[in-house]
Design a protein around this nucleic acid. Structure first.
Lengths: 223, 223
DNA sequence: CCGGACCAGATTGTCGACAATTTATAATAT
DNA sequence: ATATTATAAATTGTCGACAATCTGGTCCGG
């Protein structure tokens, strides 16, 4: 991921990034308890920095904390995932609308060329960049909205939770080429400065992903 | 505010609530620096609890923090307010849609009777409950969505920032009775389980508020 | 045998002190 | 006089220790 450069200056930052990574990747299982002492010995830092890291994780909705009891990694559920998709639909739909209004022409051009690169890779059968490319696409549109609140919410909060679901419920879907076309349409709407259409297409795009995963999950239930 | 009962169990909670109140009400001016030492002597607690409180404020987007430098209260701007309304439009629109799908009948009935009470008060000329009533209305719909992510985002985050803008840029608008009608329509759509319409009406409702305030602000510029 | 009070262990919350970094001030050289 | 560097003050970051609270088990009474 070349974008989203977060630089760790303080020790709490490093602990926060590391902890977040381990939670998202599943090295620390979902639903497990986070002991401050344990982590402080494991990371070789004081409890204070672990506490601060955990507090930040809580702000991202990656852990839940109860006073005088402790913090637990959030537990993943099907409903939770559906709820997350609903929030994404609302926010990213608005982001697409705003991007159609505010995104600079040159940024749109870059987004377009990015899609063309991805097209070649998809044609070449390299699903390697699939996830990264998808993330990059969505991220650029979010930034293109030029709404700071929106950008903060999505990149600090929802992004990592969504990734956690994707990694741990393991969903690298066969929706690659289909999603590519949808991306193309969205960019075209943005380039045409058609805010209404851009929002609608983005919302549909996310709804499709949601439905795709929902059916996949119910199939898992049957087997 | 009878709803949204946050109970302060720990000292950090109390410090957080107090600080938040003082920031939202403007007792601590927007854009001002937050000195940890100063606050710890003022509140008669250790710096650690002040730090934790400030961290939580940061998660609410009420303060911005820079490593090794310190925390400042966010500064209010017209663009910031417009951005906030855009986010609210997206999220509360989705909340209304979901409420139309998931809100229990009895909750809808309660919401309806609440509106009737407010109607009497509005007719009686008591704009006293105006803001509280509006907040209560929106809050109930958000809860009615039964989407935990959405509820957390709006009630922990955006709610207080919106209130801060309302208090400090002083906008108790003459939109009372108009807004009341809009509320009525929204509830009717929810009661009819018309998700599409509920979302559209809620979004329009928030757009109207936004436009109302935008024109009011430009008038202030002229004078 | 079951339920409640009580006690020990462990965990979180809070504190004051020290270390690291930034900011303000003053001195020096050009 | 201005710019640059060095120094001092103040602020934030980090640490270890103590206090408050929760958890689990044990004991006692019913």
């Amino acid at each position: 991921m070349s974008f989203m450069h977060e630089s760790a200056v303080t020790a709490s930052d490093k602990a926060f990034f590391r902890l977040r990574k381990e939670i998202v990747e599943g090295d620390i299982p979902a639903g497990s308890k986070l002991s401050e002492m344990e982590l402080s010995t494991k990371y070789e830092v004081s409890r204070a920095v672990v506490r601060e890291a955990i507090n930040r994780l809580e702000a991202c909705h990656l852990v839940e904390r109860r006073p005088n009891v402790g913090a637990r990694v959030v537990s993943l559920s099907e409903e939770g995932l559906m709820e997350l998709y609903q929030v994404r639909e609302a926010l990213e739909g608005m982001a697409a609308r705003l991007a159609a209004q505010h995104m600079p022409d040159e940024e749109i051009a870059k987004l377009n060329s990015l899609l063309n690169e991805q097209f070649d890779e998809v044609k070449g059968g390299e699903s390697y960049y699939q996830e990264a490319g998808d993330l990059d696409f969505h991220y650029r549109i979010i930034v293109g909205s030029q709404n700071q609140q929106l950008i903060a919410m999505l990149s600090n909060g929802i992004y990592h939770l969504a990734r956690m679901y994707r990694v741990q419920l393991g969903m690298a879907g066969p929706r690659v080429t289909t999603a590519y076309d949808e991306h193309k349409h969205i960019v075209r709407a943005i380039a045409n400065r058609d805010a209404e259409l851009a929002e609608m297409l983005m919302r549909r795009h996310i709804q499709y992903s949601k439905n795709n995963i929902a059916t996949k999950l119910t199939k898992q239930h049957q087997s």
